[in-house]
Nucleic acid binder design. Structure first.
Length: 901
RNA sequence: GGCCGAGUGGCGGAAUUGGCAGACGCUCUGGACUUAAAAUCCAGUGGGAGGGAACUCCCGUGCGGGUUCGAGUCCCGCCUCGGCUACCA
């Protein structure tokens, strides 16, 4: 490698840090990084002037392994966009920080007793060094880490907002809890009842939820620490245990989270992923009367017609949710989830044993067993019947774990003829299958026969049969008519459901944000059930000092080990216990983009003036692994903050781009175990940061998954060397300009190449098509390297185009050409459309669609002229000599085509 | 099973509204320079045929059909691979 040679040649040269005849990234990269730091080149102002652009990278979790080659991919892309935008005169804010809470640091702390903050900060130092080494134009004065106390003070503040907000369904908006209307009966029941009513409506509320309790390790595990029901460490059994936890009512925002996706500039596939996750479905809730001795189904129905559909079903009905009310006549059984509150009541004495056993088994099963591993449907009959509201027929009620308590009403009407799961279940238990839809064009004749006979399931729309007065209706009309009719009789109501569940927001961990919540204690030291928010003025609630981080052997969070002075504050004579759960890692990343705008503000999480000026984010780039959760959670918080007047936009991320994964050289995912991990440090040592950046952009489209190839790095390194030699004379002992450079005006051809390149690179950067932009610059270089006279102006222009991609390299050459200042804010080259036009162009001539000749025509030739020149070509003339020309197609500037017989 | 994405030379990939398939780079081959190597520079590089050459022809963008003067691109039906998701009624 020539760098070794150079250092050998001038080991103590005083020119070491000045220009070198040969391209040596090892000296020029640190030089320009220091220059940018010193001159604060990339610090952005508090407020933008002129057009603003906020470009954000998904900040990394600072793992102990350091930067991965996947990180610089997205980071280089945004850096190019930012550097070009600055040169185009835009106000750019481009910050970086660290998502630094996380399990590995806590595990390290448990092992060593060292505070997780120590290792976290070491890791951050490594990441910062590596990011700086790659020459990204971040405004480092805005750096933050989610573990900074001054940062998580505001994470806690946002939690207080969530705690203080209820969702007004009517207005579809989060409002202060003080504005929650209190029903008269609740108000009459006293202060405790009012408080309880409020607590039930807050966006942050408490609920019992299962955790992964591992008795052998004496600790609660995160889902990712549990593999196949065993602990990842030690392979010990893990059990599910209910624990009081904090939930966030994201489901209240489900509808807005879905609706507001539409106008965003995100890929349709990511939008689809989010929509899928939210999982909106529309249908109806229908009440089935439960047979009893006191009154007949008719009496009940006429009572319902008067009273209407009640908000909460009584004990005498089973409420189900269905998206297919049109199949009501085909319901041959019903299913309730094993956890359904009616299980006991509906089980007749002779079925008690079987039902109890079944429910106990279901409770013991993990989610995995209940879904993935369950190859066959299971269930038991309760012995009870409900009444079909349209036919009046009795329908048997079963308990089965394929119905989930957490979705809809936890009970379904089963229509085996038109639902795959119900069909499977009915087959298993010999339950009648009644076809109520005449299959439409989705089924063949043969299939239709089987469907009508109940031997095949049909889930597509069709025409109603066996459905009384509804016969003949199309599925869609039927749905509407029957819902209306049942609603009029008080038997049903239109309903919408979401797959999205409320967000389980607490973790039984030390290394996370403490909740700013106090539990009131009575004289005996027991919790009264009253919960109090820490006053915003008293934030932050810092983590307590712990002697060690070892598990204490109980399912309660590790903060239960905290010293009393932290754990039991006394306020106004009342003793409290602090909340000891901590927030999940998602919390800090939900709003970091806001703090970047005003990272030092101690009065507010962001100054409204600043927020208004910079938001929303114009470009957000990161991995697709965060396409669902992070983006959904952040959007949810943002909407709450919007409703509460903290931010001015309903959506935070206007444009989103997901970079593709970089695979190892063997086309497999990079991993230590596969031994195919590429370390960015090594690449920088060998080729320099500019080559790494350039290569990652040249590999292929940003969003595509693509394999690493070290030879390719060598390829772009060669390109940089060619540009270097195009401009400098590397054979000289001292810096000197390549003798081919001149101060003449470019020739027409040179100008055409230059302006074509400027146009292509400008357009490609706007499209984030970086690989083709680089190809165009390579073509420029291939052309100009062959030119004996290279106008200096053209050389300067190409450097400005190269600068966003290989910034250190471009700065160095820019300086060599006699400029004293950084090119970071030099005006971006512009192109002249008129110079792109060529006088003559080569076009194909086709006969019967096949290219038979290429001719050169004036660029502005009209159709007649083009045809004339095509016919004049000797080869074409030969081929069409004896033929009859049926048709001639001439596309000006493109081609001529003859259709002959 | 469902949703999404992708199949183009030895490899990564290019290709405006349908208009010269394979830009650019890597690899490989040959040549120049060198004592030699590296580096650099020059030439070639989808497959096949016409004995080599210019030249000409045929085939070729996962497979099978279709629309069109003309299809990598549009339509219909499949196959393979990758990602996400998983009994959501």
């Amino acid at each position: 490698m020539q760098r070794g040679w150079l250092e050998f040649r001038f080991p103590q040269s005083e020119f070491r840090n000045l220009l070198m005849p040969r391209y040596n990234p090892a000296t020029i990269e640190p030089k320009w990084q220091a220059y940018w730091d010193e001159h604060r080149t990339f610090e952005s102002p508090r407020l933008p002037s002129g057009e603003k652009i906020y470009v954000l990278d998904m900040f990394p979790y600072p793992s102990g392994n350091g930067l991965h080659v996947g990180h610089p991919e997205g980071y280089t892309a945004t850096d190019i966009v930012c550097r070009a935008a600055r040169m185009q005169g835009k106000s750019v804010v481009h910050p970086m920080g660290f998502d630094s809470f996380g399990l590995p640091a806590e595990e390290h702390a448990i092992k060593t007793g060292e505070h997780p903050r120590i290792q976290t900060e070491q890791n951050i130092d490594t990441f910062r060094r590596q990011l700086k080494m790659l020459g990204f134009s971040y405004d480092w004065s805005r750096e933050l880490a989610t573990t900074d106390v001054a940062y998580f003070r505001w994470t806690q503040w946002i939690f207080l907002q969530l705690f203080d907000t209820w969702f007004d369904d009517q207005q579809q908006k989060g409002r202060p809890i003080s504005e929650l209307p209190i029903p008269d009966d609740v108000a009459a029941a006293g202060d405790d009842a009012v408080q309880e009513f409020r607590d039930e409506h807050r966006l942050a509320y408490q609920s019992d939820a299962p955790v992964n309790w591992c008795p052998a390790l004496g600790t609660v595990l995160a889902n990712e620490e549990v593999i196949n029901g065993k602990s990842e460490r030690g392979d010990h059994p893990v059990e599910r245990r209910a624990l009081r936890q904090w939930m966030l009512r994201i489901t209240a925002y489900a509808s807005r989270l879905e609706d507001d996706l539409e106008p965003l500039d995100w890929s349709e596939s990511i939008k689809a992923l989010q929509r899928n996750w939210i999982g909106r479905s529309t249908g109806a809730e229908v009440d089935f009367y439960l047979a009893s001795e006191e009154s007949s189904a008719q009496d009940w129905q006429s009572a319902r017609t008067k009273s209407g559909f009640p908000r909460k079903p009584g004990d005498n009905v089973l409420r189900v949710y269905t998206t297919r009310p049109d199949t009501l006549f085909g319901a041959t059984y019903m299913v309730i989830a094993p956890e359904h509150p009616f299980v006991e009541r509906l089980t007749t004495p002779d079925n008690t044993a079987a039902v109890t056993t079944y429910c106990d088994q279901a409770a013991a099963k993990s989610d995995l067993d209940r879904t993935e591993l369950a190859k066959e449907k299971t269930g038991v009959f309760t012995g009870s019947y409900a009444t079909n509201p349209v036919s009046g027929e009795p329908i048997p009620i079963w308990v089965a774990d394929y119905v989930l308590i957490s979705y809809g009403t936890g009970a379904i009407m089963a229509v085996p003829a038109h639902d795959e799961r119900d069909f499977e279940f009915a087959k298993q238990f010999n339950i009648p299958i009644k076809c109520v839809i005449q299959p439409g064009r989705h089924a063949t004749q043969g299939e239709a026969e089987k469907i009508l006979a109940g031997n095949q399931v049909y889930t597509e729309p069709g025409t109603a049969i066996n459905s009384g007065k509804y016969n003949g209706l199309s599925t869609n009309d039927f749905k509407e008519k029957i819902t209306e009719s049942l609603a009029a009789s008080g038997l049903a109501k239109k309903a919408t459901n979401y797959k999205l569940r409320d967000w389980l927001f607490s973790r039984q961990r030390f290394w996370g944000e403490p909740f700013p919540i106090l539990h009131e204690l009575d004289d005996a030291g027991e919790k009264t059930g009253r919960v109090q928010a820490v006053d915003a003025a008293d934030l932050p609630v810092d983590l307590p000092h712990l002697e060690d981080f070892k598990p204490h052997g109980r399912p309660e969070p590790p903060l239960d080990k905290a010293p009393d002075e932290w754990l039991y504050p006394v306020i106004d004579g009342v003793r409290y216990k602090r909340e000891t759960n901590t927030m999940p890692q998602w919390a800090g990343s939900c709003w970091y983009y806001l703090r970047f705008l005003d990272p030092k503000n101690s009065e507010a999480l962001v100054d409204p003036e600043v927020e208004k000026a910079w938001m929303p984010i114009d470009l957000y780039v990161g991995g697709a692994e965060h396409a669902v959760l992070h983006l959904l959670y952040a959007r949810f918080w943002h909407k709450v903050l919007f409703d509460r007047g903290v931010v001015s936009t309903p959506e935070p991320f206007q444009k989103l781009v997901n970079q593709g994964m970089i695979l190892g050289e063997n086309n497999e995912k990079m991993s230590k175990s596969r031994g195919n991990v590429i370390n960015p440090d090594d690449v920088v040592n060998e080729y320099g940061a500019d080559s790494l950046r350039l290569y990652e952009m040249f590999m292929g489209p940003l969003e595509q998954t693509k394999p690493w190839n070290t030879e390719g790095v060598n390829g772009v390194y060669g390109f940089l060397n060619r540009v270097w030699r195009m401009i400098l004379d590397e054979n000289a002992e001292q810096i000197s300009i390549n003798p081919a450079l001149c101060d003449e005006a470019p020739t027409d051809e040179q100008n055409r190449i230059l302006h074509k390149t400027i146009k292509a690179v400008t357009d490609d950067i706007a499209k984030m098509s970086f690989n083709t932009a680089i190809a165009r610059m390579m073509e420029f270089t291939n052309f100009f390297t062959k030119q004996d006279r290279r106008p200096r102006s053209a050389m300067e222009q190409i450097l400005l185009l190269v600068a966003p991609f290989a910034p250190h390299f471009a700065e160095e050459l820019w300086q060599a050409l006699g400029h004293n200042e950084s090119l970071a804010y030099e005006a971006w080259p512009t192109y002249d459309e008129s110079l792109l036009v060529e006088d003559e162009i080569e076009i194909p001539v086709q006969i019967k669609g096949k290219v038979r000749a290429k001719i050169t025509v004036p660029a502005d030739a009209d159709q007649a002229k083009m045809e004339e020149l095509a016919r004049a070509d000797s080869r074409i003339a030969e081929l069409i000599k004896d033929k009859e020309i049926i048709k001639t197609i001439v596309v000006p500037g493109k081609m001529v085509s003859f259709v002959v017989k």
